[in-house]
């Protein structure tokens, strides 16, 4: 049950409508790419969806929300804080349990970050930080992914590696992307946003990058 059907989505900023009203229905198994100019309302839409579907989703916000003072391990583990008891979380803060350590380490291996496990997030580069946020989302282990530009700071091969990982790990996803090629390659449905409204909504196999470019 990782799909959703939302309607009446809208948002205003300073009295001015920046998004909607619009409806979005996503079925289980759909991998949706949100495309469009920056400022079109993609991030706002991701935020609204997250507010509606709540905790049953994994989120990668644009500003990542890492705790700089904590090591990578803890930043990843934070994806499951609401699934453990408070005392478990508190003990983990002081000394992580072996099983969690192994699980996080495996995950970071896939992301090429294994050797950074105990490094504070503050000393990571931008791309590394982004991957830590992705690791947290995967570790959360929900079937719905909501991600806002999750690979913006990653170079080519790394971006592909991460996108395919996200495709494999989440049954359903809604990802805001400015890279049209990535959108077409890793998603099966493209939703184009322009001036806060849905301008385009097609399966990706019916689109080419030039169709999408008209939105920009």
């Amino acid at each position: 049950m990782s799909g959703f059907d939302l309607s009446g989505l809208k948002a205003s900023f300073g009295g001015e409508r920046v998004l909607g009203p619009l409806s979005l229905r996503v079925r289980e198994g759909e991998k949706v790419a949100l495309v469009g100019k920056s400022g079109a309302g993609k991030s706002t839409l991701i935020r609204l969806i997250h507010e509606q579907v709540g905790r049953n989703s994994s989120l990668v916000p644009q500003d990542l929300g890492l705790v700089n003072a904590l090591p990578v391990f803890h930043n990843v583990f934070m994806g499951q804080l609401d699934k453990h008891s408070t005392w478990y979380n508190t003990l983990t803060l002081i000394r992580p349990f072996a099983a969690d350590r192994a699980a996080v380490k495996d995950l970071l291996n896939d992301l090429g970050l294994a050797e950074k496990l105990w490094i504070p997030a503050a000393s990571l580069s931008g791309g590394q930080r982004q991957r830590v946020a992705i690791a947290r989302a995967i570790y959360r282990n929900e079937s719905l992914l909501l991600a806002d530009e999750p690979v913006s700071a990653l170079d080519g091969p790394r971006a592909h590696q991460v996108m395919s990982l996200l495709r494999d790990r989440f049954a359903t996803s809604v990802i805001a992307l400015h890279d049209v090629e990535l959108a077409l390659q890793y998603c099966n449905r493209i939703v184009g946003i322009q001036d806060g409204l849905v301008e385009l909504d097609e399966p990706s196999d019916r689109l080419s990058s030039s169709d999408i470019m008209s939105l920009y």
Partner: peptide, 10 residues
């Protein structure tokens, strides 16, 4: 904090 940040004691 991020929108999905944990609440309470955590």
């Amino acid at each position: 904090l991020r929108p999905d940040a944990i609440t309470g004691f955590n």
